[in-house]
Design a protein around this nucleic acid. Structure first.
Length: 451
RNA sequence: CGGGGCGUGGCGCAGUCUGGUAGCGCACCUGUUUUGGGUACAGGGGGUCGUAGGUUCGAAUCCUGCCGCCCCGACCA
């Protein structure tokens, strides 16, 4: 993308309403525009990042064997009356009526509807297990929306639902989700720690939340510092293996890690003093096993081998896609702006032309831009006739991991400058070497495919 | 929903106490100049002062209602 062809309304000054760093940078980098309390328009850069994150989530869900679907944003009230949640959900559920006076609601989650889909089409145990998921806009009428997209009323969420014949199978689905979530977060450069949590209005027996440690987090968390040393890394995972998924769950959830909701002070005392930590965290996902809580009242049964109808065992699992955008920025920024991890960045690198209009500089930039684009490595070329300072400030603000700086002086020596946004370190090299380096870097950080 | 605060051009703000018909910086447009880490100068466009009503010769300013937004708290991906 050429910057002069793009729509990137960056701000020099911070809008007064933005209190936390991710919100400030999202506004300043021209990613979002607030339209109402907790409701945002997604401008090109923000929309692009939302899609990137979404695509990582898709990649990792599909890898785990889960099947994408899409359910409507507006749902009829009847299904929710069946499960009993129409009355239970409370003020957070935004309700409305259509012209016929039928009650509708803006979906805050979709257990009812997915259960309806399942019961309409699946009749035999032979069709199990199945996990269906969607990435869709949700609406929860929060009492107090805040922190930009971190607690919006409208938010983009991946919600998945597993259907299994037995509790054992459903628990494997739970473990499998935990593993796939860990992998999803790691790919975004985030460390999200699974913590034992409360089930809230979803209900159920087993539940873990995934928390990214950050000062601005809304949850208070308590953990054994050893949990921060564990990572999935590059290991091969067979998502069909009950044993392997179970082993990874044990590996990640044995050490003490809980939110304030489930914190057990006495148990925490058993953690060695020097490893006891209390901190703040951002909740970026949650997984539940709730058995037959919905399948029984809603009649989601399959015929078992014995011919008898059996209610299916279910769980649901969520990742806050729009919130992740805020969480990544909270976890990765400096005073100048965002620092995207290579795994999720709107563009792989920036090309800064220090002297637009200089024949050599223009030609060198065009060549870099053309070759990187042809290689599928989407660069952002700052071809504005602005003074260099403004170009650097813009690049720093929007946080592309790498920048290639091209100017007439360097070109006289046959070099351009490759700079890391994270370390700020620069290196002079030939344009060909810079391209090779960018290719190498992103070979190790493949960009998401999505659907 | 309880407590607090704020609505003045796209953004950040002054002006409100003490009424006299709107100003600054940034951004934007034009021109010249400049260009290696947010150039300089000159000219210019853009504002029903959130909104409705009231007081007054006169309201951004005083009074009342309403709307919106932000912060703290209690609830949540």
């Amino acid at each position: 993308m050429r910057l002069t062809q793009y729509f990137l309304p960056v701000l020099k000054e911070t809008p007064a309403e933005a209190q936390i760093v991710s919100h400030r940078f999202m506004l300043r980098a021209g990613m979002i525009k607030q339209q109402s309390a907790g409701i945002y328009s997604w401008l090109p850069l923000g929309f692009k990042m939302l899609r990137k994150i979404e695509n990582i989530v898709h990649d990792e869900q599909i890898r785990a064997g889960h099947i994408p679907i899409q359910m409507p944003i507006l749902q009829g009230a009847d299904l929710w009356r069946e499960s009993g949640r129409y009355d239970d959900y409370g003020e957070e559920m935004l309700r409305m009526q259509d012209r016929h006076g039928h009650d509708l609601l803006f979906t805050p989650t979709a257990e009812e509807m997915v259960t309806d889909i399942f019961r309409s089409h699946v009749k035999s145990y032979k069709d199990l297990p199945k996990t269906l998921y969607q990435i869709q806009w949700k609406f929860r009428d929060e009492r107090r929306p805040r922190f930009g997209v971190m607690r919006g009323r409208e938010f983009y969420m991946k919600d998945g639902y597993n259907f299994d014949l037995t509790k054992e199978d459903a628990l494997h689905a739970y473990n499998r989700h935990l593993v796939s979530y860990l992998r999803t977060y790691e790919r975004m450069g985030l460390q999200a720690i699974p913590m034992r949590a409360d089930s809230g209005p979803i209900g159920g027996d087993d539940t873990h939340e995934f928390l990214v440690l950050a000062e601005t987090g809304e949850s208070e968390v308590f953990y054994d510092s050893a949990v921060t040393d564990i990572s999935l890394g590059q290991r091969d995972i067979d998502y069909r293996s009950h044993e392997q998924c179970r082993a990874i769950l044990d590996e990640f959830t044995t050490l003490y890690a809980r939110t304030d909701e489930t914190h057990d002070a006495a148990l925490f005392e058993t953690v060695p003093t020097e490893r006891r930590r209390s901190a703040r965290g951002i909740e970026v996902g949650q997984i539940f096993y709730f058995g037959t809580k919905y399948s029984e009242p809603m009649g989601a049964t399959v015929q078992g081998p014995d011919g008898k109808p059996t209610p299916v065992h279910m769980g649901s699992h969520g990742i806050g896609v729009s919130r992740l955008l805020g969480a990544i920025i909270e976890a990765s920024h400096d005073d100048k702006g965002i620092i995207w991890p290579e795994g999720v960045t709107p563009f792989t690198c920036g090309i800064v032309n220090l002297k637009q209009g200089d024949t050599d500089a223009d030609a060198a930039c065009e060549a870099l831009y053309g070759e990187l684009s042809a290689a599928g490595l989407e660069p952002l070329y700052d071809d504005r006739t602005e003074r260099a300072g403004g170009k650097f400030a813009t690049m720093d603000l929007i946080g592309l991991p790498w920048r290639i700086t091209v100017g007439p002086r360097g070109l006289k020596n046959g070099v351009v400058e490759l700079t890391s946004r994270r370390t700020g370190e620069s290196e002079d090299m030939s344009p060909a070497a810079a391209i090779a380096r960018i290719k190498d870097i992103y070979a190790a950080h493949p960009q998401p495919k999505g659907l």
